[in-house]
């Protein structure tokens, strides 16, 4: 009986790790149908941020096979754990605010608004990619991965990571140049999923180096997609205007409630 319980526990633990790893590689950060883009470790949330607030302007371009290029421009305020405010200027005026399990999407010009409720907090745009880039070892050991190989290739230190409980799922490779993450790469065991994210043009803000260009490539059975994010005017630990911290849709607008 004890042996059965033990094996059941081991199985559950393995399942948990498998689910975790699948979430890790299957999660979404910023893009359409693009697991692992915008900086790899999408499981990272605002909790791991070494800053209380952040501001930035961004341009994001998304290319998918057989689809037109999608360009979005705007600015964002990261307001702490599970909270972000994003204002889009192009191609339309839109405000997207995530506060825990609630996502509000507001169109000032069209005078329409949605409140999307989910069981788990919605995946934040931009922030997970930035956090994974500035974390030591990309946060790999914090989520249970082990370093299995280390090599030097020119000016790049290349490390390979596996999960001890789910080695067959695949491996992560990280490339670091001068203590800054240059790229992260994931390939699953069957080579059916391949994703690479490059972090470039770092800028120092309050002693933290942030990449200002994040380029991701994802190859799955569904095709190839690319995402380019260009960040500008980054600032951290700034005081955020009250109308953004306590953002509310104007009372004259009817908010359509939906569940994810």
């Amino acid at each position: 009986m004890i042996q059965q319980l033990h094996s059941a526990k081991s199985m559950l633990r393995l399942l948990k790790y498998l689910a975790g790893v699948l979430l890790l590689i299957g999660g979404n950060v910023f893009s359409q149908g693009a697991p692992g883009q915008s900086g790899g470790l999408s499981v990272l949330s605002g909790k791991e941020a070494p800053f209380s607030t952040m501001y930035g302007a961004f341009e994001r371009m998304y290319f998918a096979e057989g689809a037109a290029t999608d360009t979005t421009r705007g600015e964002f305020y990261f307001l702490g754990e599970d909270q972000i405010y994003v204002r889009i200027h192009y191609p339309l005026n839109q405000i997207l605010a995530i506060d825990g399990n609630e996502t509000t999407v507001y169109y000032p010009d069209a005078r329409r608004a949605f409140r999307l409720i989910s069981e788990n907090p919605a995946a934040m745009p931009i922030i997970p990619g930035l956090i994974s880039a500035i974390r030591y070892e990309n946060g790999m050991s914090d989520i249970g991965f082990e370093l299995t190989n280390q090599a030097v290739n020119g000016d790049t230190i290349v490390t390979t990571w596996h999960h001890p409980e789910a080695r067959e799922v695949g491996s992560y490779e990280l490339g670091e140049v001068e203590d800054r993450l240059a790229y992260s790469l994931f390939e699953n065991a069957e080579s059916s999923i391949f994703t690479r994210t490059d972090f470039k043009d770092y800028t120092d803000i309050q002693h933290i180096s942030f990449p200002t260009i994040i380029r991701s490539l994802l190859q799955t059975s569904q095709g190839l997609s690319r995402e380019h994010i260009k960040l500008d005017k980054l600032d951290i630990n700034l005081s955020v205007p009250q109308e953004i911290v306590g953002f509310e849709v104007p009372s004259s607008i009817r908010v359509e409630r939906r569940r994810w």
Binding site: G74, L92, Q94, L96, I98, L116, P125, R259
Partner: peptide, 24 residues
């Protein structure tokens, strides 16, 4: 009632209201 995924709200950025309604 396991629900491990985090909804991809970021995919709604820059999309019109009709897209948001249909997407969710």
């Amino acid at each position: 009632g396991l629900q491990p995924e985090n909804p991809p709200a970021a995919n709604l950025l820059g999309k019109p209201p009709e897209y948001v309604a249909a997407y969710t």
